[in-house]
Amino acid sequence: MDLKISGKKALVLGASRGLGAAIAHALAAEGVLVYAAARTIDAMAAVPNLRPVQVDLADEQSVSDLIAKLQQEGGVDILINNTGGPKAGPAMGQTRDAWQSAFQMMATSIFAITDALLPMMIEKRWGRILTIGSSGVVQPIANLALSNGVRAAIAGWSKTLASEVARHGVTVNMILPGRIDTDRVRELDTIKADKTGSSVDAVQAASRNEIPIGRYGRPEEFAAVAAFLVSEPASYINGSSIRVDGGMIRGL
């Protein structure tokens, strides 16, 4: 299928590893000029159509600098909002600072970036905003209270924005990963193993048993769905949260 996005420009946040890196490479392969943004860009592979840019989403000035750079270069057509996850932990006992820090990194930063880049999409009457969430938006994940809470707020923002900008040719969606085989998921598996006294292999085996497909997803599988959602053929998908979880989430 021709996604009809060759020649478009995209900003992919959190593009140095994991899901962000997979999406950045998938879009670059489609002929999209990708601004691959991350805190550390030195180790990024040299890939055609991929242009590394540095940003720290927890730093307001760094976010402002990124916005200014992209505005100077005419904005982007596609925005992939992807942030790292906060520390694992329960809802009880979280400090005010922990909540504020998580919200700044995961929510406030992407709200500001999206708001700044939207006018240029609206002017072109074409744009795609895709935010990477978590299965915890639908089914909260134990011991990930900060992530569950902040990502739920982002889901509400995304759905609201979708109804405001669709008439201008801009779609806004979320994509919700389940257990995708990334560094972040492996880190969480290790934390769970340490907490429960189990081996990492045992934790992963138990997780696979909860996934109807029977395995963790591959980053490139997730990226393929993301690439479709920001394509021209996906122009009638708006305000949706698409699960890529192998059937793990049991709710409707």
Rank of each mutant, 00 (worst) to 15 (best):
A102F: 08
G93H: 01
W99D: 02
T95E: 12
F111E: 01
L70M: 09
A112Y: 10
S101F: 07
S109G: 10
G74L: 06
F103V: 13
P90V: 04
T83Y: 00
G89C: 10
R96L: 15
L117G: 04
E73A: 12
T83F: 01
K87W: 07
D97Y: 14
A88F: 07
L118N: 01
Q94W: 11
L118R: 00
I78N: 08
E73N: 06
L79N: 01
N81L: 02
F103A: 13
A91H: 03
P119C: 05
D77W: 07
A91Y: 04
Q72S: 14
N81D: 09
Q71E: 10
I67K: 00
M106I: 13
F103T: 14
V76T: 06
A107P: 03
A102T: 09
M105G: 03
T114M: 02
D97K: 13
M120L: 15
I78F: 13
M92S: 12
G75R: 00
N82E: 09
G85C: 05
T95F: 14
L70F: 12
N82Y: 10
R96V: 15
W99L: 13
L117V: 10
A102C: 04
A102V: 10
K69A: 12
P119Q: 05
I80F: 14
A107Q: 08
D115M: 13
G74I: 03
R96M: 15
F103Y: 15
A98N: 09
M121W: 04
T83V: 10
P90C: 05
T83C: 08
G85D: 02
F111C: 04
A98F: 10
Q94A: 13
L70E: 00
A98L: 12
G85N: 12
K87I: 05
M120H: 06
T114R: 00
A102I: 07
G89T: 11
A98T: 14
N81T: 05
I80L: 15
Q94C: 11
M121H: 05
S109F: 09
A102Y: 05
I80E: 02
A88Y: 01
N81V: 05
I113M: 12
R96I: 14
P86L: 01
N82M: 11
M92F: 12
F111Q: 07
D115Y: 10
L117M: 11
M105A: 15
L118T: 05
A98I: 09
N82F: 13
S101Q: 13
L66D: 00
V76N: 03
G75F: 07
A102H: 03
N82T: 14
A68R: 06
L70Y: 08
G89Q: 08
